[in-house]
C-alpha cells in the first residue's frame, strides 16, 4: 500500500476516539475494506486514521428485551455465524453471508459498511427491511436513526461530523416470519448489482406483514413500501414484485443499466418473496 503519509491512532476508549476526530482531519478505520483501497489509490488521503479495534465492547452481539444489539465492529463473518443473529434476526445473517468473499467477511465490519454507505452494499437492504436503528455516538452523547432515514444518498448518511456508529439495533424477527436475501453479484466486485431482502408474516392464506428492502438498484437502499402494501393487501407476489422500484432513481454502470437493475430488482423481489413465504410458518 503506497498511500499518502498519515498518522495512525489506536484509541482505547470511544471518548478518546471522538476527541481525535475533533479537528476534522481524521477518518475512522473499522475493517478497512473500503477505506484502505481508497487510500491505496490515493482517492482518500486522510491526515490521520483512527482505528477502533482496541476499543473494548464494540464487537459484542447481544440480545435484550426482544432486541438484538450488534456492535459496530462485529465482522460480517461474526454476524454470519452468530447464534444470536441466527436465532433472532436471521435475515441479517443471510445478508452478511452474501458479502464479498471470505477474506472481506473476516475483516469488514457492519459499522464500517453502514457508515460508508456504498450504494451497492449488501447490509442496507436487510437493515431497512428489519427496520433497524443505527446508534450513533458523538461528544454530545448518543442518538439513534432509523435505517430507512439513515441512508440518504450515495455515500451519504444522516451522520453528522464527529459521530461514530457504535451499534446497530434490530428488533427480533418473529419465529413465524419467513425471510430471504437475494442477490445478483457483480462478477468483478462482488457487490450486489441488486440485492433484495424480504420479510413476511403469514396470516391464514394472506400476508400480515411484509418488508422489502432493496439495495444496489439506486443511489441508496430503500424500502419498497408500495410492494409491501400490495402484499399486505392481498395482491399476489407477482403483482407486488412488479412495482418494486417504481419512482425510484437507478444507478447504471458498464455492467448493468438502470433499466436492467430495476428489472432485476423486480425479478429477484418476486423470487425472494416466494422463498420467504416457503420459510414462513
Amino acid at each position: 500500500m503506497i498511500s499518502n503519509a498519515f498518522s495512525y491512532h489506536t484509541p482505547e476508549t470511544l471518548e478518546e476516539a471522538l476527541a481525535m476526530l475533533e479537528d476534522g482531519g481524521g477518518k475512522i478505520l473499522a475493517g478497512g475494506m473500503s477505506l484502505i483501497p481508497l487510500m491505496k489509490l490515493r482517492l482518500a488521503s486522510p491526515e490521520s486514521v483512527v482505528d477502533l479495534r482496541r476499543i473494548p465492547g464494540l464487537k459484542a452481539i447481544t440480545e435484550e428485551g426482544g432486541a438484538v444489539r450488534i456492535g459496530a465492529m462485529a465482522t460480517h463473518h461474526e454476524i454470519e455465524i452468530s447464534p444470536v443473529i441466527r436465532g433472532k434476526c436471521p435475515l441479517l445473517g443471510e445478508a452478511a453471508s452474501a458479502i464479498g468473499d471470505i477474506q472481506v467477511r473476516n475483516m469488514g465490519t457492519i459499522g464500517g459498511s453502514v457508515a460508508h454507505a456504498d450504494p451497492a452494499a449488501d447490509y442496507p437492504a436487510a437493515l431497512v427491511a428489519l427496520e433497524a436503528r443505527i446508534r450513533l455516538r458523538s461528544a454530545n452523547g448518543e442518538r439513534t436513526v432509523e435505517a430507512s432515514e439513515f441512508f440518504v444518498d450515495a455515500f451519504t448518511t444522516a451522520m453528522e461530523a464527529g459521530e461514530i456508529v457504535v451499534a446497530i439495533e434490530v428488533k427480533e424477527e418473529e419465529a413465524s416470519e419467513g425471510f430471504k436475501y437475494e442477490k445478483v453479484a457483480h462478477p468483478a466486485s462482488g457487490f450486489p448489482v441488486v440485492g433484495v431482502a424480504v420479510r413476511v408474516k403469514k396470516s391464514g392464506a394472506g400476508i400480515a406483514m411484509a418488508r422489502i428492502g432493496v439495495t444496489g438498484m439506486g443511489p441508496h437502499a430503500f424500502r419498497a413500501r408500495n410492494a409491501e402494501a400490495l402484499l399486505e393487501g392481498g395482491a399476489g407476489a407477482a403483482a407486488a414484485a412488479a412495482v418494486v422500484g417504481e419512482g425510484e432513481e437507478t444507478n447504471s454502470d458498464l455492467y448493468a443499466s438502470g433499466e436492467y437493475r430495476r428489472h432485476l430488482a423486480r425479478v429477484h423481489a418476486g423470487r425472494a418473496i416466494a422463498a420467504a413465504l416457503t420459510r414462513a410458518l
Partner: peptide, 16 residues
C-alpha cells in the same frame, strides 16, 4: 480506460 481496476474488470474466479 474505464475498466481500470479489478472492481470493474471481471476475471474468472474459482467459484464461478
Amino acid at each position: 480506460l474505464v475498466s481500470g481496476e479489478l472492481t470493474d474488470y471481471a476475471l474468472p474466479r474459482a467459484s464461478r
